[in-house]
Design a protein around this nucleic acid. Structure first.
Lengths: 206, 206, 206, 206
DNA sequence: CATGAATGAGAGTTCATTCAT
DNA sequence: TATGAATGAACTCTCATTCAT
């Protein structure tokens, strides 16, 4: 950020610009997200945008920073609720939450997830990974499962990448032959299995 | 495609352009792939490019069409080899093949997979899906597993999306904390489990 | 200037702005001198800047006006000291003073001299020219050289332009092959000769 | 230069762009020399400009490269003519040539000289310096003056810088009080003296 | 047919200046 | 009066596409 907003008005502007960025990404895609488009969506001139942000990338980074906060809060909430669930129910809950989240906000999160490799995503990833790891550790402890679970980071890495991409693809071709409910249920089975395998002995080959 | 290449030279030119497209994508990324760059890589003028293709998108479509053929052939080969394997070994073989494939060709396939949602990917997806479904059907029949497997399309949908994205992420941060071998092995377990569940009774909750 | 500063605070502000202008020019060059930068350096808002100055040009004009006063005072001082010197020593003294002056103030004067033609320089030039002419007249009178010297204004015009530009170029490529001491000494000879020729008969051709 | 012009038409364009650059500099000054202005003056679109030049700086560099060639040729011509002159006449001839040169081309050279420190001038300076040094060496040899002259590079450095800036200033305020002929004549005396001093013993102080 | 010159809309960015607060 | 938010014209540069040669 170039200048620190010192008046109330400009703090509003900064928020409006980030909000506008999210709208534009949602509506026109990441490629259609241009500085003119953002400025227009925020109802200000391009100049104002550059008063507070170094450019498009800075705006997107700011948006991601804001989202990661929201997301972490959401995850905490879900974790509290999920503490008492069975593993399977917890996984289902998490997946359904993710799906709802990606469907919300006019597809913003879907578009961001799709374009992850073009975004400055390290900070977000680290933060979320930390959150999830900690939450998982607690869950397993509370449920008196032996801990540390075998390869927990690896299992979680696979778990959320698999879930994310599968859901992304699901949403991208919704109405295109795959039954969403079936996918979710099957995904729940798979992820539950993945995590259980970290506790029990490796499954024998078929 | 504007013109159907009927002379040998024209067919060579078309091939050269598609080949050039793949090179440029691999070397400069999808965003850096410009028509002048493609023409130059093909040793042809931009004008000629437009003689045979409607534009950049048409070239990329053509490239994908070509790749899908190659891929199908590769899959067939692997399927023949895999016919005699246990399910787990077949899954491992498929995943390792996928990983090797994405690493090959100077990262072309990785770049394409990353940007799948910006590409005209429907045809590719349908073709591959058909291939994989058919191959799987055969495999299960040969192994005298009851057939039709419960929700086979859904399970396959989840299987390849999970695998693809996890491997993509793995490659994007190679050397960044995750152990590739462990991920692959864990992935093998997970996918094997996913497919087995279509055969056996649903796993009871933990 | 928009307003005449009548209160003490206003006068301080005006001074601070001019001072800030000189700092910014010295540090960022004339091209990098922007009104926001000046305001910030002065610890004032852009708005205030425009309360007291019509714009960037007015600020620079004010800076030059201030500098010409300082310069005239410096010249007077030097003139007093130089009154008793031989012509050669006086010339050397003046040149060394000029060099020191241009090196001072973090290169401000060098930057101004370089960009003279983009600056409102007439007033400065006239004032200095008057000063120098008067001082020279006095010097020659005191040293009982016949007066008026032939073409004194012309000789002085050549003298300071030659000196200024040669020193500017010298400083711009310091460490680049030319020996500063040798240049200064040679310059002293040349300028001394130039002035002497106004007294004695024109030198015969070689 | 980005692309090498392969067709005759584009070679013309390259020339037209350089020509346009010189016109724009002459007419609107270096600050007014923008890529749109150059493109318009050349009667082409901005895009064409960027096909052959990396930008404004590249165009200016190309212009300077072209000018240095012209200048060197001019200097050689003058040197041949001047070979038989007395030192004073040669100096006068050179100064008058410089003045005429700077007045030509609608003030282009004047504007370039004024802004020397903002231009990529190293190549030009080196080339000209080499030319002048070599020519001078020959001249002094031919006139059986002892060689090497004391501090020849230093004397030449002073000679052309003094001449250039004095003439620049003269032209910038033409009609403003200084008599051009008188300045030139006086300058001739000064430069002649400067060079003679490298041959004879240093002049005694007045 | 092949060529590559030419286009121009549109992106990102800067900064002198104004004006509501 | 002081502030700093807001403006917007202007600039540099890119690239998909067309079309004269």
């Amino acid at each position: 950020m170039r200048k620190k907003p010192q008046q109330a008005r400009s703090r509003q502007l900064v928020d409006a610009l980030i909000e506008a960025t999210s709208k534009v990404i949602a509506q026109r895609g990441l490629d259609g997200t241009t500085t003119p488009a953002i400025a227009e969506a925020a109802g200000v001139s391009v100049g104002s945008l550059y008063q507070y942000f170094d450019g498009k990338d800075a705006l997107i980074t700011a948006l991601l920073d804001k989202l990661v906060t929201d997301l972490a809060r959401l995850l905490d909430l879900q974790a509290d609720t999920a503490a008492s669930m069975s593993l399977r129910d917890m996984v289902r809950s998490a997946i359904q939450l993710t799906l709802a989240f990606m469907r919300s906000n006019e597809g913003l999160y879907l578009e961001l997830a799709r374009n992850w490799h073009r975004l400055p995503v390290d900070h977000v990833a680290d933060t979320l990974q930390g959150h999830i790891l900690e939450r998982s550790r607690l869950y397993f402890l509370q449920h008196q499962l032996e801990y540390p679970i075998r390869d927990l980071p690896v299992r979680l890495f696979i778990a959320y990448n698999s879930t994310l991409f599968t859901l992304m693809r699901l949403m991208s071709q919704e109405g295109g032959g795959v039954n969403p409910e079936a996918v979710v249920e099957c995904l729940v089975d798979m992820i539950t299995g993945l995590l259980e395998q970290g506790v029990a002995a490796p499954a024998p080959a078929l």
